[in-house]
């Protein structure tokens, strides 16, 4: 059994679908900061079989967690203060994603004007569909294409 120490202040992102922790690591920009981060892959889970966990030691409210629900709607966010879980919350789909995903429509203005931010809006919360703000093209993960 692998033991990872407690954190005093920060977040524990639990119930991440196994294999997606690194994706979240990059989307949250954790590769660009010097906080202590533990990435636990393929941990045993009664409910999920296998899951990933991310522990981030950082000032609370310093992470933009909007993107989490987009990547994996089942993630649980544990907010840690003084070494204790102060809040446990489920994530919600953000209304807008800015520079998180890129529009791949070759007819979109973003394909030629590369300085434009890539903005997607939540078009259908039930079907979890995001569309490009410029061309309305539906975002599809590479694995869905």
């Amino acid at each position: 059994m692998l033991n990872v120490g407690k954190i005093e202040e920060g977040y524990v992102l639990d119930h991440i679908q196994a294999g997606r922790a690194m994706l979240i690591y990059h989307h949250l920009g954790l590769d660009k900061v010097d906080w202590t981060v533990a990435i636990i892959k393929n941990a045993r889970s009664n409910a999920m079989g296998r899951k990933d966990i991310l522990k981030v030691e950082c000032p609370v409210d310093s992470l933009n967690l909007d993107v989490l629900a987009f990547i994996d709607p089942n993630i649980t966010v544990n907010v840690i203060r003084g070494g204790e879980i102060m809040e446990k919350k489920k994530v919600e789909l953000p209304k807008e994603l800015v520079n998180v995903i890129r529009c791949t429509n070759p007819r979109c203005i973003t394909s030629v004007e590369t300085s434009l931010p890539h903005i997607f809006y939540l078009a259908d919360p039930n079907r979890r569909i995001y569309r490009c703000k410029y061309c309305d093209e539906k975002y599809q993960e590479i694995s869905d294409r």
């Binding site: 203005i109 061309c135 309305d136």
Partner: peptide, 10 residues
């Protein structure tokens, strides 16, 4: 009028 989609929004 522009050939690229979303140009008017920009």
């Amino acid at each position: 009028r522009h050939p690229k989609e979303g140009a008017a929004a920009v």
